[in-house]
């Protein structure tokens, strides 16, 4: 048998075949440049900024190490912003998990062929349109003159809507200016980010484990609790990382739908823009990063990734 002739470019292929590490380095070069140098670099710059402070008289940033900005972050008004945002992110994450699980479960277990394609389309379709368009559409839906108010009136449930809006703290004049409205829009906008990782995780749970569980005497509810949920947990955690961090950092939804009280994203936006207080903006930005770090550490401690 004769060997195939050497073609141009063959020596490069040969060299890469002999040194797989070189190939990996070449493939990783650009992403590493982007993620490490640009992303982590700017993050580090931000971290440094948060240890500077604004001079009250001149309005200029004093480039000297100080904890004054963090002291400012932990004043009552700013803590209220942090607390509000974290509570909202937690509520949105929990609700997303509850709403997404049945959808992801049916898609992973029962949908085949065109039904599966239809599922992906239905979940992804909202991501194709502009985020702003969706949020403004929701503002109209939730407005006092919107379709929801109208629908509640049509079926005679206006008192229910009014009772919900009368709840102190989360209620308001109409859904579009209440925390409930903000919550609903967050839930809608981030739901695909919860469904997709969940569905992927559920799909990876082998069917024969479900058979084995039933065979050994587990009723469907017990199989769900002891086998499906623990094995799908990494996917649930992945989805919750998306919904939680996206909610923590968002500054547009609460500005368009909701009360006028600030969320972390809005605080960052105002501090670095109008107020010109980049150190405080940087300190605010550190909050979601710290919370996500704690969250991942806690999830790992709780064994959420054991099944990986």
């Amino acid at each position: 048998m004769t060997r195939p002739p050497r073609r141009p470019g063959g020596s490069l292929a040969d060299a890469l075949w002999r040194r797989p590490g070189l190939l990996a380095a070449l493939l990783l070069a650009l992403p590493v440049l982007w993620l490490v140098v640009v992303y982590l670099g700017s993050l580090a710059a931000l971290l440094v900024q948060s240890f500077y402070a604004l001079d009250d008289f001149s309005g200029l940033v004093v480039e000297e190490f100080t904890l004054a900005t963090y002291a400012q972050l932990f004043t009552a008004a700013n803590l209220a912003i942090i607390q509000r945002t974290v509570l909202m992110a937690a509520a949105v994450t929990l609700a997303s998990a509850v709403v997404a699980f049945p959808i992801a479960y049916v898609a992973a277990r029962y949908a085949r062929g065109w039904r599966k394609a239809a599922f992906y389309l239905a979940v992804m379709l909202p991501l194709w349109s502009s985020y702003l368009v969706k949020v403004y559409a929701w503002k109209l839906i939730l407005a006092k003159e919107g379709i929801l108010t109208w629908a509640f009136a049509k079926v005679g449930l206006t008192p229910l809507l009014e009772a919900v809006l009368a709840i102190p703290g989360i209620g308001g004049n109409s859904l579009s200016v209440s925390y409930i409205g903000t919550f609903l829009v967050f839930l809608y906008v981030w739901l695909p980010y919860m469904i997709l990782p969940m569905q992927a995780a559920l799909e990876r749970v082998p069917t024969n484990l479900l058979d084995a569980s039933a065979d050994l005497g587990a009723r469907p509810g017990e199989t769900f609790r002891h086998v499906i949920l623990p094995l799908a947990l990494p996917g649930v955690v992945a989805g919750s990382i998306f919904t939680f961090s996206l909610t923590l950092g968002d500054y547009i939804i609460p500005q368009i739908v909701g009360s006028s009280r600030l969320f972390i994203g809005q605080a960052v936006y105002t501090q670095q823009g109008t107020a010109g207080n980049v150190p405080l903006a940087a300190a605010f930005t550190m909050v979601p990063i710290a919370i996500m770090g704690l969250y991942l550490w806690g999830a790992k401690r709780a064994g959420a990734f054991d099944a990986l």
Binding site: N208, S213, A214, D215, L216, G217, A218, L231
Partner: peptide
């Protein structure tokens, strides 16, 4: 299946990856 007095040894064993051996065996 969960109401039948039969148990199965599966071809690819179907052991629960998130349990240790003892908890796998003690599952029923």
């Amino acid at each position: 299946p969960y109401r039948r007095a039969v148990n199965t040894v599966f071809q690819d064993y179907a052991l629960f990856p998130h349990f240790d051996v003892r908890d796998n065996v003690a599952y029923p």
